[in-house]
Write a protein that binds this DNA or RNA. Structure first.
Length: 314
DNA sequence: GTTCCGGATCTGCGGACGCT
DNA sequence: AGCGTCCGCAGATCCGGAAC
C-alpha cells in the first residue's frame, strides 16, 4: 500500500507547537504568527487528515484521542530536527575553513596559525592549499587568501601585503649572483616565474636579458623555488615578505637591493554574507594585524621598492 | 482564547528565455 | 538537451479587527 503524502510542514509545525504548549495563542507567540494563523493552519491540517485534533474549550484547547495518538510522533520528529539543526550550526561555527595559495599557506600562514589558535582555542582551523581556481565564488570556504587586485564579485576583500618580488639566493652564491644579475658575470640558473624576472630586470634597466633561456627549473611554487635557492641551485625570485625568517636567519640573501612591485597584492577575501560572522571577523582582525606587523618588520628589507608596470593580460 | 471575515502580502508554479 | 533564472499569475497564507 503506498504511504500517504505528508501534509504541509507549516500545519505540522503549528500542531507540534500547539500540542506541546496546550494553546493556540502560545503556539502563535512562539512561531511569530497570530493566533488566527495557527487556528487556520490547524484547521487545514484537520481537513487534510480528516480527523479533529483539538477540542476547542472555553479559553483553552486540548488534544482529542486522535490528536493525542499523533502528538508523540510529531513532537519526537521535531525534536530530532531541532537537535540535528543545532549540531549542524554548532559544527559550522566551530570550524574556520581557509583556502590559500600553496606558497602563502606553507611559507607564511601555517607558521602563524598557532597564534590564532591560541587566541580562539575553541575554533578548529582547516587550511586548504589545493590548486587555485579562477572562480573564487565557486569554492566552499569561510575565508580565502589570494593574489590579485581584490575585485572578486560578491567577495569582501582586504589588502594584506602588496605583491613584491626580488631575487634571493644562498649566502655562498651572494657575490657571484650579484655579478650575474648586474651583467658583470656568467649567468646562473634562474628559478621562479619568468614574468616576475622580466619585470624585475626591467626595473633594473636590463631589458636585454634572455629570461626564458636562463630559467633553470620551473617548479610553479614559490616555496619550492626558495628551497632550491637555499640549496644553492640558482637564484629564485620570491616575495620577500613571505620569506622574512629565511632572510633574517641568513639562509637566504638578497644579492641586489632592488624589490619590484607590480600593483597587485595578496588579499584576504570572504563572501559578503560572512562579513558579520564572529569567526570571520576574528580571523580578519588577526590576519590584518599580522600582515601589518610583517610589513613593518620588513621595512629594512624593502627599502628599495620600485613600482613596475604589470604584465599585460594574456 | 478562539473563530470568522475582508483585505493585503507572500509563495509556488509554469512558461519563456539565456547560457553551457 | 539540460539547467538555471526571471516574470507573471493564481492561490495560499497571514493580519487586524470584530464577535463570541
Amino acid at each position: 500500500m503506498p504511504s500517504p503524502s505528508l501534509p504541509p510542514l507549516s500545519g505540522l509545525r503549528a500542531f507540534e507547537a500547539a500540542a506541546r504548549l496546550g494553546s493556540f495563542a502560545r503556539a502563535a507567540a512562539e512561531l511569530n504568527m497570530t493566533p488566527a494563523a495557527v487556528s487556520y493552519q490547524i484547521k487545514q491540517l484537520e481537513a487534510r487528515l480528516g480527523v479533529v485534533l483539538f477540542r476547542r474549550l472555553a479559553r483553552r484547547v486540548e488534544l482529542t484521542t486522535s490528536g493525542d495518538a499523533l502528538a508523540p510522533a510529531i513532537l519526537g520528529a521535531f525534536a530530532t530536527m531541532r537537535s540535528a539543526i543545532a549540531q549542524t550550526v554548532e559544527r559550522t561555527q566551530d570550524e574556520l575553513s581557509i583556502t590559500t595559495l600553496p606558497t602563502v599557506g606553507a611559507a607564511w600562514l601555517a607558521p602563524k596559525l598557532g597564534r590564532f589558535r591560541a587566541r580562539m582555542p575553541a575554533l578548529r582551523v582547516r587550511l586548504d592549499m589545493s590548486v587555485p581556481t579562477a572562480d573564487l565564488g565557486a569554492l566552499d570556504f569561510d575565508v580565502a587568501v589570494r593574489s590579485g587586485r581584490g575585485d572578486w564579485p560578491g567577495l569582501q576583500s582586504h589588502l594584506l601585503v602588496p605583491n613584491l618580488f626580488t631575487p634571493v639566493c644562498s649566502p655562498d652564491l651572494l657575490a657571484e649572483a650579484g655579478r650575474c644579475l648586474r651583467g658583470d658575470g656568467p649567468m646562473l640558473p634562474l628559478l621562479g616565474r619568468p614574468n616576475w624576472w622580466r619585470l624585475w630586470f626591467g626595473a633594473l634597466g636590463r631589458r636585454d636579458v634572455d629570461v626564458d633561456g636562463a630559467i633553470g627549473a620551473l617548479f610553479g611554487l614559490e616555496h619550492l623555488d626558495a628551497a632550491a635557492a637555499m640549496a644553492g641551485h640558482g637564484i629564485a625570485i620570491v616575495s620577500p615578505v613571505f620569506f622574512q625568517r629565511e632572510l633574517l636567519a641568513g639562509r637566504l640573501v638578497m644579492p641586489v637591493g632592488l624589490v619590484a612591485a607590480d600593483g597587485r597584492g595578496y588579499w584576504l577575501a570572504y563572501p559578503r554574507t560572512q562579513a558579520t560572522s564572529k569567526k570571520v571577523r576574528a580571523f580578519r582582525q588577526w590576519i590584518v594585524d599580522e600582515a601589518a606587523a610583517d610589513l613593518h618588520a620588513a621595512r629594512e628589507l624593502l627599502a628599495h621598492i620600485v613600482e613596475v608596470a604589470p604584465a599585460p593580460a594574456a
